[in-house]
Nucleic acid binder design. Structure first.
Lengths: 339, 339
DNA sequence: TTGTAGGCGTTATCAG
DNA sequence: CTGATAACGCCTACAA
């Protein structure tokens, strides 16, 4: 292993000078700098990060708390984070939280005390993970997509409530009155807010709430659970003519269920999803959904975290990125069988 | 920050003793051990990893070189790696290689010289990434799924050639003679081997090779490119009655193409995929495919890497995990229109 | 069984 | 502008 001392000898200067050239390059004669650079080249010198980190008391590592990445939503967010962090000179350490819950305060705190990470981005905190607030006072933290409403901790997401409302309004405009929702039993704030948005839309349109039209899929938005939830809904004495699903995969499950029960989407049933992941346009009917800028969400999270790590004055604490309602083939005006 | 010295003072022993308890626990009186443990508890002491790593010349970090994780195949492998590495006391650093190619020797080597990682697992090397061989002489490395055939570098995968052969044989048994393949323009060994397996099966069955039946989809197995490749194939004067695709997503694209051209799968066309990712059973017809044990592949990779890091004598250098042909709804006996 | 002390490779504070 | 040197927090001979 070649170290700074070797470079100093090779360049005929002191280690201090080498270090200066490597870091700031300020206050060193251009010719001395050149000598050092050449020596570094010749020896293929790379500074030892453990030593540097020890000395500077930093790690240049960002911790990412992510649930099962198989969800394409998360993989896109991850890409965004990784791209930015690399540009900023950080490495990204990924901790699998296995579809939340296991997200343990002690584990996380220990990683920071041990000086393993300079900051953290969470992708799927539960709305009641209150411990985060206390944690954020001590270490740089950004919550991406999901966040704890009551805690004043930096977060970045989409306006889920508004997006859901707009999506349901589209259904209402199409003449639907019996509109169901398939949400999830997880404890994500997004699920709550999408339900709120759904109710907002109904209320504004003067449609009274019917709790039998609120179905719950599994915590991890599994296809099977979406299928089951839709089946239950469609088996109701007064079945809905439209279903708003809080995730694309759930919507796909709902469509499958409808097909199995002999219902044609969108003619017999309208379905909408959320997120706009790739497979929404892999099969007909293409899914009407809400596009969420996953990659951008990731990118901005890292940028925001960096502001907090570097203690940039006036760093934002709350960012909402624009969403977009994408009309495709799974919604249609209600067939007027009643009224 | 509480350090080992504080613990020593609190416990009334020397730092050496504390260190011993923390690491080996050998040769320390049980009662002394207890004193130390209590002090650690009281002070919430966590050893500083930078310092420890500097001293022990290790990082306890594993580098994972992965392409776009949005591919569910990779996310499952990743889960397997992460689970094992955590148990082994390693953190996993993920480097996005953006659908290969950018996998740069200099970048990787520098990460090791800098002492940032103790070992590396690659998920998608190209079959001609020969530099890996030299690299592997200096640093622990395991290639997962894809590997460089000519290089004697540890790798773990599935027997792609055999699996492909078996898959095509299933088609042959069903009476198909004009069997096409949709492979990819990427430089993965798996693509090559699946093509070899396809040819093996044909040859063994006495079916002569027809290069017009070999189509190439995009390097990243995109749905759109699968669609296009299938379209070209089906537009042939003598169209194939079965298509073997080297990836599930490609197969889904082929099915979409067939549908668009008025062909019913499996009655008018048989299609098979590869990998068995989740969405193969999200839409009818469910895909006949080859199941690859992704999670297990990841798990075993990390285990193998650990053997190499710890220089376990007789650590394996070549591991093949069993695959499984899964018959579902996209293959059927050929409709005897010819012959 | 336990303690003392030197050093891992850097950076940063001083003098010069 | 440059060089010597003291930390950073930990582990591990070696000594007791």
């Amino acid at each position: 292993m070649v170290k700074i001392e070797d470079v100093a000898r090779e360049a005929g200067v002191s280690v201090a000078t080498v270090s200066r050239v490597l870091n700031e390059s300020c206050g060193v004669l251009p010719e001395t700098q050149e000598k050092v650079r050449l020596a570094v080249e010749r020896l293929h010198y790379e500074p030892n990060l453990s030593a540097r980190n020890l000395r500077k008391n930093e790690s240049r590592i960002i911790l990412i708390l992510a649930p099962n990445f198989s969800n394409p939503y998360y993989s896109n967010v991850l890409s965004g984070i990784c791209d930015v962090s690399r540009n900023l000179g950080y490495s990204t350490l990924i901790y699998n939280t296995y579809d939340s819950n296991a997200l343990d305060e002690k584990l996380v705190t220990s990683l920071f005390q041990k000086n393993r990470a300079d900051g953290m981005i969470t992708l799927a905190v539960n709305r009641d993970d209150y411990w985060l607030a206390q944690y954020a006072e001590k270490y740089p933290l950004v919550q991406c997509s999901e966040y704890v409403e009551e805690a004043a901790v930096p977060h970045i997401s989409v306006d889920n409530r508004l997006a859901a409302k707009e999506s349901v309004q589209h259904l209402i405009v199409q003449g639907h009155r019996r509109i169901a929702i398939v949400t999830s039993t997880n404890r994500y704030l997004s699920s709550t807010n999408r339900l709120r948005g759904y109710l907002d839309a109904l209320e504004e349109a003067g449609i009274s709430r019917d709790d039998s039209l609120i179905a719950y899929a599994s915590a991890d938005y599994s296809f099977a659970s979406g299928k089951q939830a839709a089946k239950d809904l469609l088996s109701l004495p007064e079945a809905p003519s439209a279903i708003f699903c809080v995730s694309d995969i759930l919507a796909l499950g709902a469509i499958a269920s409808a097909g199995k029960m002999g219902l044609q989407v969108p003619w017999d049933l309208s379905v909408t999803g959320f997120d706009d992941v790739d497979y929404t346009t892999m099969f007909h009917p293409y899914l009407t959904t809400v596009a969420v800028p996953c990659y951008e969400l990731g990118r901005r999270s890292m940028l925001l975290l960096y502001d907090h790590i570097t203690q940039k004055p006036g760093a934002e604490r709350e960012v909402y990125l624009p969403h977009q309602i994408i009309l495709r083939e799974t919604t249609a005006p209600q067939a007027r069988t009643d009224a």
